[in-house]
């Protein structure tokens, strides 16, 4: 096989078709993810429309400063990821690894801040279940808000953890020189995943942290 075709798998006509197929497949997965998170957002909407006051109370107990910082951290990680894709398309190994490392650091920062927030909620008895200790107004309904808070941010954080693992895998591949200007598809497809996770947070932040602030 000639060097030109090293990245081309035998069942594709050319690199363009191979790339299009990867992109469509990745989007098919992301469409499924949109509807998966969509179910959680729907549950949130149904209960929030039923108990608007309790959701405002629950929201006002969250730390808007930490949530805001995390939003900025995640958007910054999307920028570094976009730049990692940019350098992957140029086939610059060192810069791919540099920007993947920055993305990993920012992603880990997000998760670290999330741990601080979770432990804070734990110590204040805001985790639904046996330990739930909030006894202010509408306690039972505030508990429902916190069920959504932990289910939605927890599922988001799980996606971040999986993403962090995949970044390490991409860094190893990049270090082995697997990505060239001709073939950078895995970095690009992972970029789509990472940006999707960012989009989920773009909606979670106002819906969980910013209601009932005024």
């Amino acid at each position: 096989m000639s060097a030109k075709n090293a990245a081309l798998q035998h069942h594709f006509e050319d690199l363009g078709q191979q790339y299009e197929s990867s992109q469509l497949g990745m989007w098919a997965f992301l469409v499924q993810e949109i509807l998966f998170f969509g179910g959680l957002f729907l549950g949130y909407l149904v209960y929030r429309s039923s108990y608007p006051e309790a959701f405002k109370i629950g929201s006002s107990l969250l730390d808007v400063k930490l949530g805001g910082i995390n939003t900025a951290v995640l958007i910054a990680s999307s920028l570094t990821m976009a730049l990692a894709v940019y350098w992957a398309q140029k086939g610059d190994k060192k810069k791919i690894i540099l920007f993947l490392t920055l993305t990993l650091i920012l992603g880990s920062t997000f998760l670290g801040i999330k741990v601080v927030e979770y432990s804070h909620k734990w110590h204040h008895g805001l985790v639904p279940g046996e330990m739930f200790a909030y006894s202010g107004p509408l306690a039972d309904q505030v508990r429902i808000f916190y069920s959504f808070y932990f289910a939605m941010t927890g599922m988001h954080a799980l996606h971040m953890i999986i993403g962090a693992g995949l970044i390490v895998w991409l860094m190893v591949k990049a270090a082995r020189g697997r990505f060239t200007a001709e073939y950078s598809t895995p970095v690009e497809m992972f970029g789509l995943y990472w940006h999707f996770v960012d989009i989920v947070w773009i909606y979670l932040f106002p819906l969980l942290y910013l209601i009932g602030r005024s």
Binding site: L79, A82, G191, H195, D198, I199, Y203, P206, L207
Partner: peptide
């Protein structure tokens, strides 16, 4: 809030993605 979030999501989808 949802309008701004949707604007942000659209920018991410069109350009970053």
């Amino acid at each position: 809030a949802l309008g701004i979030a949707t604007t942000k999501a659209t920018l991410v989808i069109l350009y970053f993605m």
